[in-house]
Design a protein around this nucleic acid. Sequence first.
RNA 1: CGCGGGAUGGAGCAGUGGUAGCUCGUCAGGCUCAUAACCUGAAGGUCGUACGUUCGAAUCGUACUCCCGCAACCA
Length: 480
Amino acid sequence: MSQKFYLTTTLPYVNAIPHVGHTLEFVQADVIARYMRQKLGNDNVYFNVGTDEHGLKIFRKAKKEGLEIQDYVDKYAEKWKEFCELLQISYDRFIRTTDTDHIKSATEFWETCDEAGDIYKKKYEGLYCVGCEEFKTEKDLVDGKCPAHQKEPEKYSEENYFFKFSKYQNKLLELYKKNANFVKPKSKLKEMTSFVSSGLEDFSISRRKENLPWGVPVPGDDEQVMYVWFDALVNYITTIGYGSNEEKFEKWWPCVQLCGPDNTRFQSAMWQAMLMSAGIEPSDQILVHGMILAEDGTKMSKTIGNVVSPFDLIERYGVDAVRYYLVAGIPTFSDVAFSYKQLESEYRGDLQNNFGNLLNRIITLIKKREVEIDESRVDSNFKKKVDEYVENYTEFMDQFVLYDAMKKVEELGTYGNRYIAEEEPWAKNIRHEEAEEVLNNLHYLVRRMIVCYSPVLPEKCKKAEQALKNLENVILFEKI
RNA sequence: CGCGGGAUGGAGCAGUGGUAGCUCGUCAGGCUCAUAACCUGAAGGUCGUACGUUCGAAUCGUACUCCCGCAACCA
């Protein structure tokens, strides 16, 4: 049986405007997906993205814009699809939580948790923050306001369904303990462990329909709809056939998930408990990427006006520079201040100079020297050396440490540039066979570079491959 | 004491007990195949502060200072 790999991103709210953080997550995920396709074959990788389309916030925004809710979410879902296209995101499915199979799947999931005895009804009086889509305790509030949204929460008193989160405290801790890589990086796993250890409270998973008509109906209760988080999380299994195609589901589950630091809890605690309740094995791994801060190292904020728009970035630098920077220019799992200067220097240094330029040098020399390219002529020691870099790259990629993996490819390029300078295959006094060996070596090296870079720079690498095959000089990376 | 992360040459980072390293930038030289690209060399750091452990600490301990995230639209 061949190995399968299923990767999913966290679904953004459909009405959010794509920012650099989303861009980071999408690009990281896409690079992983493309790498795994290289490794396992296209048919053995499934890559999920999509939009989260329920909830009070969306309901109200739609009203505000004067649109029917469905029209409203359709409009914004389209924008996210365009965003994916712009970024060259090679998803297998773009799921929307309003898709019919998702409604069905969420319903079935609810019923399963209910049968397991993990859903119960309870009268709840509380302060609800629409911004957070969450009930707040007095303790959470600062000056009577939600600290996250600077707004006074609304008083709600309603009877809702609750999920027995507390029941899974020990099981979650076992899960974390058993698998030290369950949440990556380790510091986030530690955070989760201490969060779960401190005690869990059951959370509310439904809303009264009269307050919020926009949601998945709770099965067997006409007056309630599912709380947006509950249904949204289920998308990870809907997309691979839960509730509609058992065989497909078995084939793909479990998944590797990407999420932002603010989402760690939902993905690695709540969602895992929900899966346990439904008798489904936990996710394979949660990868928590870093947070991109503004250039001064503080948080990006529209109010302060220091946000970086991905659309502007792509327009100014092109999609390759942006993709490359997000993967190779910033550490994969830690917070980092965004830097235009670094984006530019990574692009120039690594892509234009180290990689693109080397490719052209080699193409020109092969043409000028009229040497024959044949892999059997590659020196075995040289090959070994090159393969070492590639192996290091592979090890890092397999652990999803994209940043370190990219550094290895860059080092390989540096090695090539050093080698060509030492051997001087352009020198007049060099023998033909010698030049032939050197150029075969370099040809091999740059081909390996192309393979390693192609998950990040798919289009450019195709061009590079063509150029190398046809021995045509090419400017892969335009000046920026 | 809510929880967590961090402070290393001009900038960004690596480095979990044994003579401080990488990338970019700067300066000097070399090469000419190449997208003024490439190669070599140099300058530049008492590793946030103070105590402590140790033959020896960027690395371990304690205290402190500052920054950031969880936690404003939000990955």
